[in-house]
């Protein structure tokens, strides 16, 4: 029984460790001054797993790099923006997850978080989605702005590759 528990725990931990955002680049509207950027920096750094944060006031771009094995969810980044009185727009992400659904309607399950997105190609589909079903993948793509308090439904991927 102990072995089963240990095995279950291992599977749970290992799956979490292989599924996370590694890079989130959000466009934030409304930041007019240095304290605005500092506030965003402090809020983002307060999210467990965030490694570095860079804020460019003139473009509104917030670049967030995360440590491997984190379990930060997209809603945390969005709330960090909202609590400072700003508005988040589109975000480009590099995220690791598992492909589920079907080859025609693939879904990226960001295990370790409750985030999941329908996948759609941002251009011509280059990846063989069917061959990646059920596998751990790394996706680079765009999450369009969603309504306040909601997560985007669709991740428009540019690249999708099997995770090593």
């Amino acid at each position: 029984m102990k072995k089963v528990l240990v095995l279950a725990l291992f599977v749970l931990l290992s799956s979490g460790a292989h599924a996370e955002y590694s890079q989130v680049n959000m466009t934030v509207f409304g930041m007019d001054c240095a304290p605005c950027a500092h506030a965003i920096h402090v809020s983002m750094m307060g999210i467990k797993g965030v490694d570095t944060v860079k804020v460019d006031l003139n473009t509104g771009l917030v670049n967030i790099s995360l440590s491997p094995g984190n379990s930060a969810g997209l809603h945390q980044f969005e709330e960090a923006v909202e609590k400072n009185g700003f508005t988040h727009k589109d975000a480009t992400v590099v995220v690791r997850g598992t492909l589920s659904g079907s080859a025609d309607a693939p879904v990226l399950e960001v295990t370790g978080t409750s985030d999941h997105y329908a996948l759609a190609p941002s251009g011509q589909p280059a990846a063989d989605i069917a061959a990646l079903m059920g596998k751990s993948v790394i996706v680079n793509g765009l999450l369009p702005q969603a309504a306040k308090g909601k997560l985007p439904n669709t991740l428009r991927y540019k690249t999708i590759t099997e995770a090593q």
């Binding site: 500092h38 506030a39 402090v42 809020s43 307060g46 467990k48 945390q76 709330e79 960090a80 609590k83």
Partner: peptide, 9 residues
């Protein structure tokens, strides 16, 4: 002096 919150949700 502005003390921002780092509290994450």
């Amino acid at each position: 002096y502005l003390k921002y919150s780092s509290h994450a949700y």
